[in-house]
Every structure is written in structure tokens, then in C-alpha cells.
């Protein structure tokens, strides 16, 4: 379990590094899928199989496939990759990276001073325990999440409508 945790954690960090430095959107997407699968393995190693399965099915399966579909619709070509490479000069990434590294140092220092001496033994918490929490004391939260998803659906279908129809409705509104 320890080996699985550290190995998949390393894979997750390396794949994430390639996501943010890649110039080709499809390559970045595939690296992000690798990173998400590695994080799912971390969940399995920690003893959270329900969360790991959700990570594979919903995150790597559904959300990333949505990204892949949209990127394929956009008809990106070699010029886009070349422009990305031109944007990624050292002047662009040094400043933000230094700021993010500082934030990481602060986070790690806070972790060191916190009360987190616990050790994760890897005992499995199954979907039954999660379901008992979700549909017992957390029922209102589940309903709120359902409304959040409905709001996202309405927003996506409104924002994503086609331009010509949008122009017509704009004339009607004016």
C-alpha cells in the first residue's frame, strides 16, 4: 500500500507538470487523464475504493471526455501549438512559478506546524459508509448539489447557444 501510494503520487505530480507545460492541447488532456488515474490509484491505496472508482468514472471518464470532444470541435492545428510555444517563454513562467513556489513553501510550513501526526492504515471505507452519510445527515447537501447541477445545465445550454440564434433574440430583446 505504501509503495502504491508513493509511486502513483510521483506519477501524478510528473503528469501534472507535463499538463501545465505542454503546448499541444490534446497531449495536455491525455497527460491530465494519466494524472487523474494516478490520483485514483492513490485513493485505492489509501483505502477509499468508492472515491477511486468515482475518480475514474466521473473525472477521467466523463469530464475529460467532454474536454476531448470540445477540443476536437475547435479544429486546432500546428499553428496553435507554435503560438503556444511562443507564449511559453521564460519571461512568462518564471514570475508565476516563483509565486506558486512561495505559496507551496508556506503551505508546507503550515503542515509541519499542524497537528497531523496521524497515520493512514489503509483500512477500507466502503461505499456503504459513504451512502449512509450522504443519505442520512447530509441529505440536504445532496439536494443542493442536485440544484447546482441543474443550474450548470441551464447555464451551459444558455451560454453555449449558437451565435445566429443569439443575434435574433438580441433583436427581439431590443
Amino acid at each position: 500500500m505504501e509503495l502504491a501510494f508513493y509511486a502513483s503520487g510521483l506519477v501524478a505530480v510528473l503528469a501534472t507538470l507535463r499538463v501545465i507545460t505542454s503546448t499541444n492541447p490534446i497531449h495536455a488532456l491525455l497527460y491530465l487523464i494519466v494524472s487523474l488515474l494516478a490520483v485514483a490509484l492513490v485513493f485505492f491505496a489509501l483505502g477509499a475504493p468508492f472515491a477511486g472508482a468515482l475518480e475514474v468514472i466521473v473525472y477521467a471518464g466523463a469530464i475529460m471526455v467532454l474536454f476531448v470532444f470540445v477540443v476536437m470541435m475547435l479544429n486546432l492545428n500546428a499553428a496553435v501549438t507554435a503560438r503556444e510555444r511562443a507564449w511559453l517563454g521564460p519571461r512568462t513562467w518564471v514570475g508565476p512559478s516563483v509565486l506558486a513556489a512561495l505559496l507551496l513553501v508556506v503551505l508546507l510550513a503550515t503542515l509541519q506546524h499542524g497537528d497531523i501526526g496521524r497515520v493512514i492504515e489503509g483500512d477500507t471505507l466502503t461505499a456503504k459508509a459513504v451512502g449512509m452519510v450522504l443519505f442520512g445527515p447530509w441529505l440536504v447537501v445532496v439536494e443542493l448539489v442536485a440544484m447546482l447541477l441543474l443550474a450548470a445545465l441551464v447555464t451551459a445550454s444558455h451560454v453555449g447557444r449558437s451565435v445566429s440564434r443569439e443575434a435574433d433574440s438580441g433583436r427581439d430583446g431590443a
Binding site: F5, V39, L46, L104, L108, L111, I116, G117, V119, G122
Partner: peptide
């Protein structure tokens, strides 16, 4: 025996 909680949180912070 087991993963320290701090290591998991460090991984989350790095990501």
C-alpha cells in the same frame, strides 16, 4: 506501516 497523513497532504499541496 501505513502512510503518514502529512505525506498525503503534501501531495495535495504540490498538485
Amino acid at each position: 506501516n501505513g502512510v503518514p497523513m502529512a505525506h498525503g497532504l503534501v501531495l495535495a499541496a504540490v498538485l
